[in-house]
Design a protein around this nucleic acid. Structure first.
Lengths: 292, 292
DNA sequence: TTAACCAATACTTTGAAGGTATCAGATGGA
DNA sequence: TCCATCTGATACCTTCAAAGTATTGGTTAA
């Protein structure tokens, strides 16, 4: 049995006339009759009552007709959908992003993408920059928003935003009423920052800032999550340098201050150059447009 | 495209090896490779990335694999089910019955049938005996429980029960305290009975009873429904002769009395002899067993 | 009784799909 | 670097399933 046989059966079931059904299928009546007989033989079921004058469906035939219709329509849909998937109009896109971008570029990007690709299921994964790098390499992500990494030849990157770092501290901190902070203000501060193993770009930007000021930083705590850093600063355990887009959502007992010659970080969208997923390109297009 | 092509695709998608996939399908590798190429060409979609060493699914291929699995399983189910329908294990049975049998033989019959044929959908239709006759002839019912009709050569009938008629009247009726009623008690009574057009067998049984007693009956009302007859008797508009199985559910202000030489009616299950619906035979078998 | 219609049968033809032999690219060990 | 080996692709041949043509046989309606 084959879908072709189902089409033969359906044509006869709908016309109840061998000649006309054969014509619908652009063939002559005798081979058509033989195919119908063959179908009944293979299924071991009589689908039609017929004499040389009338053709009618048996109850089994009626039931089979319904089934055939659903099977054929699903079959056709599968063949249609695979083309849509190949063209990137349908399918799945595994999209990673670091927490630092969750409140700025990611929502805009996701929104615009799902408008133009409503049939692509977006699988959102919030991960640390290091995890994102690993997953991109391992092919577990199709695209991701992260800090511009040490340049990787396998990745295509599109610049999305440039973030300055700001210093955050408790409102009762000695520097809380200064307009601007310089490296010299920081030389004796206890610093809280994500470790290199989690966000190397961020960590090294902070380290470089201190190095440029001729100061060796005093890192006292290395929590994995931005959220934890802010919490620890609020507890009075130290100060931190964080991206400015995260400063808008600080508690009232914390203040943020701009840094003189502030270090900057580039937020980029990146995807494997050889990405096999055709749903990626539209995302890159959106990012390219909005970055201009 | 055909289901066979889907099977080829699925074999390769699951083994990711042309030679092994071909072997699974009991064929050699070269024609198998050609079929895969043909599938991709017909769909216009690359389903596999491959070099002479490794074969992998493209995202479109992954998606298509899922779709193929559901399509193929539905396809196979359709071919299996049509056999079940033809054998009477699955499908639909349009089952008619008259209200007079709704409380006696029908529930038992329906219950036992749906135990042994759980996959046959029973479409129950409560109709008058005349409607049942017409629907059986027109092929709108597969089987029905009704009073034994004037013998029809197209119907196979199986005896289910024999019902005596009893007289019903209001509790304050003159005959209400008699032990038994004879034709002579009925000669001046106003009679309520379903018309010949609705239940000919029942009507003629009543008429014959009077004729045998040398009395001409005085039919005053001819409602279509048994329910209405009982209501009208309760209103004091006359008396009625009804099947004994209906007497158990009378209101308390009504009484039923046995008739001397009571007329009897046969309740039968009948179905067209040339019924095309294979689900019928099991019903007839049940009826034949329980009637013994 | 005949003409018309329609499905089934007999026989021929064709082409899609399978088989065999071989090639060509990739990989890993000597 | 070279060779053995593995694996998918190509070229060519073969076969059989399915389509076509011609005809039969049974049914219906004029």
């Amino acid at each position: 049995m084959d879908t072709r046989h189902m089409h033969y059966f359906m044509a006869l079931a709908e016309t109840l006339h061998f000649g006309r059904a054969a014509k619908l299928l652009h063939m002559t009546q005798p081979p058509f009759s033989r195919q119908i007989a063959l179908i009944e033989q293979k299924l071991g079921v009589k689908l039609f009552e017929r004499n040389s004058r009338h053709v009618t469906l048996t109850p089994a035939g009626k039931y089979f007709l319904d089934d055939c219709r659903t099977v054929i329509s699903q079959f056709d849909a599968a063949c249609r959908d695979v083309r849509l998937v190949a063209s990137g109009m349908k399918g799945e896109l595994r999209f990673g992003f670091m927490m630092h971008a969750a409140h700025s570029v990611v929502p805009r990007l996701v929104q615009r993408y799902s408008e133009i690709r409503p049939d692509v299921r977006l699988v959102l994964e919030e991960r640390t920059p290091t995890e994102i790098d690993d997953m991109l390499v391992a092919g577990k992500l199709d695209a991701a928003v992260t800090f511009a990494p040490g340049y990787s030849p396998h990745l295509r990157t599109i610049h999305l935003a440039r973030e300055k770092l700001r210093m955050i501290m408790r409102a009762d901190h000695a520097c809380a009423n200064k307009r601007m902070i310089g490296p010299d203000d920081l030389c004796h501060e206890r610093l809280i920052a994500t470790p290199t193993s989690v966000a190397p770009t961020l960590r090294s930007a902070i380290a470089s800032y201190f190095a440029a000021g001729g100061i060796s930083p005093n890192f006292v705590l290395d929590p994995r999550l931005q959220h934890t850093i802010i919490k620890l600063v609020a507890e009075g355990l130290g100060v931190a340098l964080i991206p400015e887009s995260l400063c808008s959502m600080l508690d009232e007992n914390l203040v943020s201050k701009p840094l003189r010659t502030a270090p900057t970080l580039d937020v980029v969208l990146c995807a494997p150059i050889a990405s096999a997923n055709p749903a990626v390109s539209a995302l890159m297009d959106i990012a390219a447009q909005s970055s201009c």
